[in-house]
Design a protein around this nucleic acid. Sequence first.
DNA 1: CGCTGCTTTGAAGCCCTTCAAACCAGGTGG
DNA 2: CCACCTGGTTTGAAGGGCTTCAAAGCAGCG
Lengths: 246, 246
Amino acid sequence: MSSSGVDLIDRLLMKLRVRDDISAEEEAALRGVLGEVQTFPADHTFVRPRQHLNVSTLLLEGLMCRFKDLSEGQRQITEIHVPGDFADLHSFTLKYLDHGLMTLTPCKFAFSEHEKLKKLTAEYPHLARMLWFSTNLDAAIHREWEVSLGRRTALERTAHLFCELQVRLGTVGLASEREYALAITQLELAECLGLTSVHVNRVLKELRERKLVEFRSSKVQIFDLPELRRLAEFDPAYLYLDKQPR
Amino acid sequence: MSSSGVDLIDRLLMKLRVRDDISAEEEAALRGVLGEVQTFPADHTFVRPRQHLNVSTLLLEGLMCRFKDLSEGQRQITEIHVPGDFADLHSFTLKYLDHGLMTLTPCKFAFSEHEKLKKLTAEYPHLARMLWFSTNLDAAIHREWEVSLGRRTALERTAHLFCELQVRLGTVGLASEREYALAITQLELAECLGLTSVHVNRVLKELRERKLVEFRSSKVQIFDLPELRRLAEFDPAYLYLDKQPR
DNA sequence: CGCTGCTTTGAAGCCCTTCAAACCAGGTGG
DNA sequence: CCACCTGGTTTGAAGGGCTTCAAAGCAGCG
């Protein structure tokens, strides 16, 4: 147990147990594949595209993101990771990544060797399916972002992201219906949303003036969640929040 | 063997064997989970959002897509599936889908019961990882589409899609460096690209006039693949075309 | 041979970008 | 302890890429 009373894999377990039961034996087995806790500062790129990996990274504290860069210096963030996410579990089968992985805020994580994951998943097929599920959940998030980027206006898209993070952080106990911490810049937000930081700034102003949500001093304050969700056409179905035998 | 000389799972095996070796025993086991071949007409939605599934669909012939609709009738296609793709393998762990699945052209597929997949993956961990890999490949394609939708211009984005399909169809023997069949409408193309069909039409005109690629009468003809790839900043790394022990 | 769905083109407008500069807050050093 | 520096935020003005609206052209098929 850390001083905060939150154990190494507690948030991962919270995330998984929303979706299915995890036995005590499975929990112990999962714990067995995790290494020492490590700390990294903000804005630290620690996986570069094409870099071969033999470990996967469980995010314990802080925010990370996956991103891809284009030649003209443009960047698209393809997913934000919250505590409890296995940020690069997909590298277990991909062997290297087509994108980069960086910290957005100071982070703590625990690494898990692919060799141990190989044994774990062969021995515990149900855990294998749960981990598989969690990479499929990442893909579902990618799809929803495709919809946002392709079809939603800047205002709707921004609202949608705030809704998504409220749910995902809420699942691991890091958000209420009213607020959550989000220590990223407007530029980083723009890189998630396929916009310029200038326009994100204007959008944030409108969301604030409409009394829906305020993003200020590293915090998201939600004034009217139902209306925010309506604006964004936010339907949490893509986050698979129900318990199913998987 | 069908009359065309292509067996049920040949294209799936082609796809997988680009990325890793599949033993004869594994091949037989894989064959064992597939049901009868079925045929569907074009424009047939056969999985609706939230519909619970107990089978997954291996696409044998034709093109399918995953899509999400918004309330105002807007649609975003989030991935195009080509023969050899397990179009909704992710439903094996998700249990239902957050999106729809439809045929773009007349299709043949073989269903595979989740119960059988469960046994197969528990018994053959390497096959499990290969199937897991293939859902992670779908996620990689989603990410690349996020980059296109978020950061590439309409022209680059369209060029990029043509490049992607050339590689993916080429992998299963359905495209050369010069051309491939693509029997979809400009509206469907627009729904992939986050554009209007009107603008897609103008973009196609420019690509044609630049002597890069022509999309006409259900066929893509590539005049200058290197230049097309340069325009799109197409890097096939995200398609994981190299053989690795997975 | 005419219907239907798809493609093509034109004109006007808007959402978001680009460029530029001012503002602001937090941290550092004199 | 304030002046300065730096990175992030905010605002304005002009421009462009894509959309919207509208209509004509075209091809395949009953």
